[in-house]
């Protein structure tokens, strides 16, 4: 059986019409993501990467061109695509358990309970079922959000700067976790990030976008063995290649160095 989760984007264009302006946010985006691939989209603010992600999730409507998942044109949100936002967006009035179960049709059934339990274990939150979001740290909350997005076993997981709000150390720990989850679930992941190191650590391919209008400038493959060593020569090489696209060099790094 062929693995599901192929995303094909063809000549995607997104325009916002205002009263006296016609703003093109995305223009001629062409991208194919294979099942099980980890893709990072990187670009400066305003390059439309979040709009792209929201289009794929189905939260944003109206576009030209095609977005196909396993050959099927997208029409609104679907349980086949999970999403993790930058802010964890856990509902504060529900326990972690209930939050994780939000995507399930019958969250109270025995089967659902088992699924929730499995996913809490997957993200390392076993024992926090009855806790409320405000009792969790930022990293734990984001892990809960990932569990919530994965609980339906979607074909694609879309992550909108999921680690952007975390501190540097937690972030590095989360890189390991994310990679582990990705491997374990064998799921397609598309992540938006600002962080070049993060993109290189996690991705198979890095999509570099330019802004106004948002277009794909370059797709850089990352053919490094995992787990990746941030200090290795190849790693730095790829980093330079990415930064080149922004006319930046490692002399003026905007990412964290440790």
């Amino acid at each position: 059986m062929e693995r599901l989760g192929t995303l094909e984007v063809k000549h995607l264009q997104k325009r916002y019409r205002t009263r006296n302006d016609d703003l093109t946010v995305l223009d001629d985006i062409n991208l194919t993501v294979q099942p099980g691939e980890f893709i990072s989209i990187i670009g400066s603010s305003g390059c439309g990467k979040t709009t792209f992600l929201r289009l794929v999730v189905g939260l944003e409507k109206g576009y030209e061109g095609e977005i196909l998942l396993d050959g099927q044109k997208l029409n609104g949100p679907s349980l086949k695509r999970g999403v993790v936002f930058q802010d964890h967006r856990l509902l504060p009035w529900f326990s972690i358990e209930k939050n994780v179960g939000l995507g399930l049709k019958h969250p109270k059934s025995a089967e659902s309970r088992k699924t929730i339990q499995e996913h809490l274990e997957l993200v390392g939150l076993k024992g926090f079922e009855k806790h409320y979001p405000h009792q969790l740290s930022g990293g734990m909350s984001q892990r809960a959000a990932i569990a919530r997005a994965l609980v339906n076993r979607p074909e694609i997981l879309l992550l909108d700067e999921p680690l952007g709000a975390l501190d540097a150390l937690t972030r590095m720990y989360m890189h390991q976790e994310l990679e582990r989850i990705w491997k374990q679930e064998g799921i397609t992941m598309i992540m938006i990030t600002h962080d070049v190191d993060e993109a290189i650590v996690l991705s198979d391919k890095i999509v570099v976008m330019s802004s106004r209008p948002g277009t794909i400038k370059k797709i850089i493959p990352v053919p490094l063995a995992r787990p990746r060593d941030r200090a290795s020569y190849d790693f730095v090489k790829i980093k330079e290649e990415v930064l080149e696209e922004f006319q930046l060099h490692t002399d003026y790094p905007f990412t964290y160095t440790i």
Binding site: L59, P77, G82, F85, R89, L91, W93, L102, G103
Partner: peptide, 27 residues
């Protein structure tokens, strides 16, 4: 809106959205 988007992504209908997000948030 951020909460509403979470459940919209889960294909919630109006009623379930009302029960799980709108009502508790407006409570």
């Amino acid at each position: 809106t951020s909460y509403l988007e979470v459940v919209r992504a889960f294909e919630y209908g109006k009623f379930r959205m009302f029960r799980t997000v709108i009502l508790p948030s407006a409570l």
